[in-house]
Computed example of a mutant assay.
Amino acid sequence: MIGIIGIVVVLGMVFGGYLAAGGKMGIILKALPYEMAMIGGAAVGAFLIANDIATVKHTIKDMKKVFKGAAWKHGDYRDLLCLMFELIRLGRQNAVALEEHIENPAESEIFGRYPKIRADHEAVELICDTLRSAAMNYDDPHQVEEVLDKRLDAHLHHALHTSHALQTVADGLPALGIVAAVLGVIKTMASIDQPPEVLGGLIGGALVGTFLGVFLAYGFVGPFSAKLKSVIEEEHQFYLMIREVLVANLHNHATTLCIEVGRQNAPGHHRPSFGELEEALRALSSPVAA
C-alpha cells in the first residue's frame, strides 16, 4: 500500500506542480507515446541484453516485493524459533529420530507444523544441511560456521542481483532520454522552415524525452531498486537468525539458550517477546527439555 501511495505522490506532485505553474499537458501527452516507446523500449532491450532469462523471470517475480514487502512476518520468526527448538531438542534426545526429519523434511511431522517455512527451499536446506553436518561430530565448530557464512553470503549476493539489474536500468535511463531528445532535435532541424509556433512544439516534444528519462530513473526505477534491496536484506535476516541458532547449537549451549540467542538476533520490529516465545514453546506437544 505504501508503494502505491508513493507512486501517486510522485505523479501528483510533479504534474500537479507543472500544471499549477501554468504548464500545458497537451504537448507532453502528444509526445509521450513516442518517447515512451523509444526510452522504455530501449531500456527493456538493454535489460534483456545484460541479463539471462533466469534473472529476467526473477526480476519480474521480485517486483511484487516492492508493494508487498518482506515475505517473513512477526509470526514467522516465532514459528522458526519453535521449529528450531523442536529439532535441536529431538537431536539431543535421539539423533536417529532427528535424521528421519532432516533427510526427508517434506514428509516430516515437525516441518509439517510450519508449512510456510517448509515451503522455503533455502531455509529448509540451511537447517537440514547444518544439522546433518553437526551430526558428523566436527572437531571444530568453526568449520561449519565458515561454511554457513559463505553459503549465506552467496545466497544474499544472488538475491540482490535483481536489485542491481534494476539499478543499472535506472542509471541508463537519463542517457536514453537524451538519445530520444536528440532524435527529437534532428526531427526539429528537418522542419526548420516551419513557423516558430510549430518549431516550439517540436522542440518541446523533444525535451519530453529528456524529462521522461530522468523522471523514470529517479522517480520510479531507482526507488524500486532501492526498495527491493531493502526488502531482500530484511528477508535475509530470517536466514541469519537460523545461522545464530545453529551456531549456538554447534557450541553445545542449552537448547533454550540457543533459541534465546536466535530471538535476540531477530529484527527488532519482528522479534517475538520473551513471554510470547515462552508461551509458544510451552504449547508444543512434546515435553520441554533444556
Rank of each mutant, 00 (worst) to 15 (best):
K30R: 13
N94E: 14
D193Y: 01
W72K: 05
E279R: 07
K24L: 07
M241T: 15
P195T: 08
N252T: 10
L29G: 15
L126P: 07
I28H: 12
D140F: 08
A43L: 03
D193V: 08
L80A: 07
P195F: 09
L87Q: 02
F274M: 08
G213L: 06
A119F: 08
G75F: 00
G172I: 02
V124F: 02
I102L: 02
K61R: 14
K116G: 03
A106P: 00
T188M: 14
G219M: 06
T130R: 02
V179L: 13
M25F: 12
S273P: 00
A206P: 02
P174K: 09
W72C: 03
A217Q: 01
Q264M: 12
I203D: 00
M63D: 06
I110W: 05
A123H: 04
P174H: 12
L131V: 05
D79T: 07
A190D: 10
P196W: 10
R92M: 07
N137H: 12
I127M: 08
L81E: 03
M84G: 00
L19N: 09
L83D: 01
F238T: 06
S133L: 12
I102S: 01
A123K: 04
V14R: 02
A97S: 10
L126C: 09
A170S: 13
Y18F: 15
V56P: 06
E122M: 09
Q143G: 00
R271S: 02
T59D: 10
V8R: 06
T55E: 00
Q194N: 12
A289H: 14
S225K: 01
A175Y: 14
I28G: 00
E233H: 05
E278L: 14
I27C: 04
E146F: 08
E234S: 11
G45I: 07
E100T: 12
H58V: 01
P33D: 03
N249S: 14
V44P: 01
G40K: 03
V261Q: 05
H58A: 14
G209L: 03
V169I: 15
G22Q: 09
I102Q: 01
M38R: 11
L199H: 05
M38P: 00
A283R: 14
L83H: 03
D79H: 09
R243M: 06
G91E: 04
P33E: 03
I110L: 11
P115T: 09
L212M: 12
H155A: 12
A106T: 13
M84H: 07
I28K: 05
Y239T: 01
H121W: 03
K68F: 08
A165G: 07
L199I: 14
G184Y: 04
L29Q: 12
G222W: 01
G41K: 06
T210C: 08
I203V: 15
G69P: 04
V8F: 14
L199Y: 02
I5P: 02
I203L: 13
L160I: 10
H269R: 13
I4M: 12
S286V: 14
F274A: 13
A180N: 08
L126G: 06
